[in-house]
């Protein structure tokens, strides 16, 4: 099943690329891609994303259910783990920060190996963590770097950041580290969906689609920058025109850019309907963002349902003789 799913996902992405490429060369379609699609995608993204987040937020958190991953706060002489088992709001924020910025949970993937000698060696099984972290951070950097197309003048911090990214000054134009990193990370994430039998078995079409789409996005970006260079001035003109709601794209901009742009739009519009919503969801996870303080502070369940209970009086009524025989005190003789 999996190869079929991957194949279809791949073809879908190729189809998007082909439509964009040939659309860019068709007079009737070109304005559609440049002038309408970005707005449509942005609207779908914003509306869909907010809808989902609001719908999550709408569902209450009836119980305080953090997964505790360290020592609780109890006795003063026992050192509590403030981040993996926070007892305060600050601690919970810290835990979330570790989770969102460093992927703390994925980092736990240790592996024990028995080696010769009297001890176990813990080797790190951290490739997934590393690839995920590399991918997400690179993506963030690249997104920020792209701001320079939308801002005039380009702020200093952005220039500084780009310079940092291109620190190694390899090739001309300078190679951005993040371009290489994100490509390799995506390749790894894709490859393990093929190689790792477990992950292969459970992967859905959507899993491959997201990866192929992102790969397509990265590859077209890299190609535009390093080989089939597009006229960046014209692209910037276009980007700025988008921001002032009067989109205009020069005829000089090559179709490859349209493919890149369409990938971005498809990705944006796809996010609210897909697992990529984890981008918003991670912040709302009740097993991570709550402090383990349910014995310190009462947590309120807004729908706390009334239930039928078996009261002491009913119990005593039912077992009166036996309670008496056992010599236990009775409320009613």
């Amino acid at each position: 099943m999996s190869p079929l799913r991957a194949g279809i996902a791949f073809l879908l992405v190729v189809l998007v690329a082909a439509l964009a490429y040939f659309g860019a060369e068709t007079a009737a379609v070109r304005p559609l891609l440049a002038d309408i699609l970005p707005y449509a995608a942005l609207v779908i993204f914003l509306a869909g994303f907010s809808f989902k987040v609001i719908r999550w937020a709408w569902s209450p958190v009836p119980f305080r259910i953090p997964t505790t991953c360290g020592q609780q706060k109890s006795l003063p002489w026992i050192k509590a783990n403030r981040l993996d088992n926070p007892s305060t709001k600050t601690g919970a924020w810290g835990r979330m920060a570790l989770e969102v910025l460093c992927f703390r949970s994925l980092f736990r993937n240790t592996r024990a190996e028995l080696r010769e000698g009297p001890r176990i060696a813990y080797s790190e099984d951290k490739f997934l963590w590393l690839a995920a972290l590399a991918f997400h951070w690179s993506l963030l950097f690249i997104l920020l770097r792209h701001l320079r197309f939308f801002l005039l003048p380009v702020p200093h911090w952005l220039l500084g950041m780009s310079a940092l990214d291109g620190f190694f000054q390899v090739g001309a134009p300078g190679l951005y580290i993040t371009d290489g990193v994100i490509f390799l990370a995506l390749l790894y994430l894709l490859a393990r969906r093929f190689w790792d039998a477990q992950v292969r078995y459970l992967s859905l079409l959507a899993d491959y689609f997201a990866l192929f789409l992102l790969l397509g996005l990265v590859l077209t970006g890299i190609q535009m920058r390093y080989s089939d260079r597009v006229d960046l001035e014209r692209v910037k003109e276009f980007a700025l025109s988008l921001t002032v709601l009067s989109p205009h794209i020069s005829a000089a901009v090559a179709p490859l850019f349209f493919v890149h742009l369409t990938f971005v739009c498809v990705l944006l519009a796809y996010i609210p309907f897909s697992k990529l919503m984890h981008l918003g969801g991670v912040f709302l996870s009740p097993t991570r963002n709550l402090a383990n303080n349910s014995r310190i502070q009462r947590h309120i369940n807004p729908w706390n349902p009334p239930v039928k209970v078996h009261t002491y009086a009913e119990w005593e009524d039912e077992f009166r003789e036996k309670i008496r025989a056992a010599g236990l005190p009775l409320e009613k003789e």
Partner: peptide
């Protein structure tokens, strides 16, 4: 229950099937 439990609604939506939990 989707309306009563954020955990349920969220956990239905955001799994990326990375497989970290598998073994």
């Amino acid at each position: 229950r989707l309306k009563k439990f954020r955990s349920f609604r969220l956990f239905m939506d955001i799994c990326v099937r990375c497989g970290a939990c598998a073994d």
